[in-house]
């Protein structure tokens, strides 16, 4: 098993944190992982992305030019990464704020209305966990034990009381993800 994933969106959306929870959960499962962020002056409003590789074997390059899965959370990221998805790969995106939808026909495309769901849950911070839920559903990872452990590892202890709310957001994402091709 090897999955090469890019998660890209605006800075402040929780792109890097989402990647970290995903990477930690895979690590807890006993897999090899790398987590490589874009770094620099990216802040709230700018673009941010993270490459997460999950594999059963040692990982060579943390830097990639093509991906199995792209999780896209804004228009500039869609323009940058749609063509970088391998044929037969997967694109997950939140249609919120997307004016020019993806056009590829050789990949599986899913949508997740995470922005709207987060508003509905009255918790804007749940956004990235809803997206993570969508991704986990597509990966067929119904077991959230490792994700729960990953949250415990990534959140500071004073925020551990928020783990159930995060898990709830992930479950909402798992339910809400929709296949566009069907």
């Amino acid at each position: 098993m090897k999955k090469e994933i890019i998660i890209a969106g605006f800075g402040g959306q929780g792109v890097l944190s989402m990647g970290k929870v995903l990477a930690y959960a895979a690590l807890m499962e006993g897999r090899e992982v790398t987590w490589m962020p874009s770094y620099g002056p990216e802040q709230r409003g700018g673009t941010a992305n993270v490459t997460v590789i999950i594999s059963d074997e040692a990982i060579s390059s943390p830097i990639l030019n093509t991906f199995d899965v792209a999780v896209i959370l804004n228009q500039p990221s869609l323009e940058r990464f749609e063509q970088a998805i391998k044929p037969g790969g997967t694109l997950i995106y939140d249609p919120y704020g997307i004016c020019v939808p993806p056009t590829r026909t050789d990949i599986s495309i899913y949508t997740i209305d995470a922005m709207d769901l987060a508003a509905e849950m009255k918790n804007a911070k749940a956004f990235n966990m809803i997206v993570l839920g969508a991704l986990l559903r597509i990966f067929d990872s119904g077991n959230l034990t490792y994700v729960e452990q990953a949250l415990a590892k990534t959140l500071p202890e004073r925020h551990h009381h928020l783990i159930p709310a995060n898990i709830e957001a992930i479950r909402r994402g798992m339910q809400a993800v929709q296949s566009q091709s069907s």
């Binding site: 490589m36 962020p37 770094y39 830097i63």
Partner: peptide, 10 residues
């Protein structure tokens, strides 16, 4: 370098 410094691994 910036890659090895910024990346996370086990």
């Amino acid at each position: 370098d910036g890659v090895i410094g910024q990346m996370m691994e086990r």
